[in-house]
Write a protein that binds this DNA or RNA. Structure first.
Lengths: 252, 252
DNA sequence: ACTCTGACAATGGTTGAAAATTAGACCCGT
DNA sequence: ACGGGTCTAATTTTCAACCATTGTCAGAGT
């Protein structure tokens, strides 16, 4: 039922067997929430000390973060938190759209009755949360919705690509560009998608999912452009320090 | 000191920036070619000694291999070379088919004249190699063909997912299940795809690519099933030796 | 203003040992 | 013999100290 699916898909399902895994999810949330400012440099030593571990596991976590595109690394230079960009956002959503459409197509063929029931139960919980204005559960529920469909596709590589690769970066964009608009519409779209899957109409489900995601892309893109404009405006006022400010926390 | 102007200043070029990268590609080819037997356990220490490096970079390479699905790792247990399975093969090709179809769609929109000329030149080299029976270049050319289209898509995340993630595992399946059949037909399919892209007909190109890849899937699947059957037969006759090829001493 | 030089800082890499965990062998009672 | 629990051994994980290599930056020199 309400198992904690959001906890950690990318790392191993085993809670946190290694130190690197533990610190990994900590850094992940820090980056996604913007506590580590985009573009800011990451010092291995300092990061290790901050979590009370040595450089070994820290480097491991950093490498995982690199493959998740949450940080960018260059040899002998170091790691810095990824920068949000409109181009990458579009690349990301294009890919996500294609992959989740595929997931819908497969899920319509292969979803089990139990999984379908679970999906419908989730939908009802989402609607209840909408009425109560529980924004946290709305976010959580949206993630779970997409996750369950992806899981129902039964394609392990598809799951891993979405969950381990794109998922976290996507969360960063959504979190930092959150504009939480019209959850009622999103849930209505969810409902139609579930109906299509329930009817075993994979093509329709895929199409609806693509449109649903495209809607999300538009929202996020618009908000990101606003943020970029604001940042650019701030940069004009203090142009002398422009370059050095980039790697410090200026996101108010 | 030799001032090499062509020094790689970007992390994209996986030339040989760090030790981990160097040894990584070495292990990759060893796994892909089957020199490290599928399912065999990998001893970190032994692997490090074999390449004359310490355990640090070795662990890093191993982690990268894990994300490429060339090895499977479990905490405190160790790493072992991935096992080929028909289910995974199908998952893999499904995903590849979807992604490369997407690449075709995008490439038809965004390919430059220079890239298109390059693609056509490659095609002619492939046909020349076919006539001369140059099987090595046929293999290489096929990889390049798909790579160039993926690159022409212009979607960085798509490129990274295919090249960094699926590519190597795919090569393993193709190498170990090589049955080199009908290259003439494959090249004819390549030509039609290039024509469709040249006509800016993304939908057609995507469809042709999907069929092309499906053809490859069928071949590889059939060959893999043969191999599995043989292996199963061998296991019946001499069950004692089956599992014991490890990296302990040397694989001579 | 530009380039070159050298010190400085951070990362990449090595080594050896200690802590943690699993797999497999061993023992024992029923 | 058999199931169950314990113990040992082997590997992995982590730590800590160290050196080597590279990028960065300031300052001198032109």
């Amino acid at each position: 039922m309400s198992q904690d699916t959001s906890k950690d898909h990318s790392a191993n399902e085993r809670g946190a067997a290694t130190l690197a895994d533990q610190v990994l999810s900590a850094i992940q949330t820090a980056i996604i929430k913007g506590e580590l400012a985009p573009g800011s440099k990451i010092n291995e030593q300092a990061l290790a000390e901050r979590f009370g571990i040595s450089r070994g596991p820290t480097r491991e976590a950093l490498q995982t973060l690199e493959r998740q595109r949450l940080v960018v690394r260059m040899p002998h230079v170091g790691a810095r938190v990824a920068q949000l960009s409109v181009e990458e956002l579009n690349d990301l959503y294009d890919l996500r759209s294609t992959l989740e459409a595929m997931a819908c197509r497969l899920a319509a063929e292969r979803i089990t009755d139990a999984q379908l029931a679970e999906l419908q139960a989730l939908l009802e919980r989402q609607e209840a949360a909408l009425k109560q204005g529980d924004t946290y559960f709305q976010e959580q529920g949206d993630v779970d919705f997409h996750y369950q469909i992806i899981r129902a596709s039964g394609n392990k590589h598809l799951q891993e690509t979405l969950m381990g690769g794109l998922y976290h970066l996507l969360r960063m964009y959504r979190y930092q560009c959150s504009n939480h608009q019209r959850p009622s519409r999103a849930i209505a779209e969810h409902r139609r998608i579930v109906e299509a899957i329930s009817d075993r109409d994979g093509e329709l489900a895929a199409l609806l999912m693509q449109r649903h995601i495209e809607q999300g892309r538009r929202n996020t893109e618009a908000r990101l452009k606003e943020l970029k404009a604001e940042a650019s405006a701030r940069e004009h006022s203090s142009a002398t320090f422009a370059n050095t400010q980039q790697l410090k926390g200026e996101t108010a």
